[in-house]
């Protein structure tokens, strides 16, 4: 059997690939923003003195980090359905990805909080900053600056993991690929193209985060190091 590859036959579906890639980026964007918020709240919650809140945050983080995303997506999908709530596949996908990345963000943020030297908080108290000011200027912003590289790689991994949403028929890049390969019978070419698209998407995201880092953290830009 001779091997014949026909990329043009698949490449002529480029509008579908483009639409899939756009939806993948959209999923990643919403899940990143919401997940970052959820994760920060969970990390703060885990550090509080209230044992109940701290315990609940720990259970959330450990449960999510020790079960596969695929199972989580199915649980959210069928869980909402069995409660009688009907949402689009896109909404369910964003919800499941947010819950997932929130737990990883919480662990990274916790490491950031722990890296803040105690003396800086005491110094801020000595300067009579309010609790809110201390939390914002002395703890949260420097912590984000410290863990920014780890956070951004987690968000790129999230974009790649969003491919799993094809299993609940969210029309993102992998779902588009599954459709095109069943239509053209050119599975090899289709998945090679999609793999290349994902590599490009992850490079674009990395470049974007790098630029955002330069904008957000001028100190990093001037000194070349965080703090």
């Amino acid at each position: 059997m001779s091997l014949q590859l026909d990329f043009p036959a698949v490449l002529e579906r480029w509008p579908s690939f483009l639409a899939g890639a756009a939806l993948t980026l959209e999923l990643a964007f919403f899940a990143t923003v919401l997940g970052a918020l959820l994760g920060t709240v969970a990390a703060v919650g885990r550090g509080t003195h209230n044992a109940l809140i701290a315990g609940a945050c720990k259970v959330y983080v450990e449960t999510i980090r020790n079960t596969p995303l695929l199972v989580q997506i199915f649980l959210v999908y069928f869980g909402l359905a069995s409660l009688g709530l009907k949402y689009s596949a896109f909404t369910v996908a964003v919800a499941a990805l947010t819950i997932n990345v929130g737990a990883y963000t919480a662990e990274i943020m916790r490491a950031g909080f722990e890296a803040i030297p105690r003396g800086q908080i005491e110094a801020a108290e000595g300067l009579a900053l309010s609790r809110l000011q201390i939390y914002w200027h002395i703890i949260l912003l420097p912590a984000i600056e410290k863990v920014y590289p780890a956070l951004t790689s987690q968000f790129v991994l999230l974009m790649l993991a969003s491919s799993v949403c094809s299993q609940i028929s969210a029309e993102e890049l992998t779902a588009v690929a599954n459709y095109i390969q069943s239509d053209t019978y050119r599975a090899f070419e289709t998945y090679i193209i999609v793999a290349v698209l994902y590599v490009i998407l992850s490079l674009v995201m990395r470049a974007g985060f790098w630029g955002l880092g330069l904008l957000l953290f001028p100190r990093r830009r001037r000194l070349g190091t965080p703090l």
């Binding site: 790649l160 491919s163 992998t174 690929a177 998945y191 793999a195 994902y198």
Partner: peptide
């Protein structure tokens, strides 16, 4: 830079 799912399909 590639999702495991795509590698599996490939």
């Amino acid at each position: 830079g590639t999702p495991l799912l795509v590698i599996l399909f490939l």
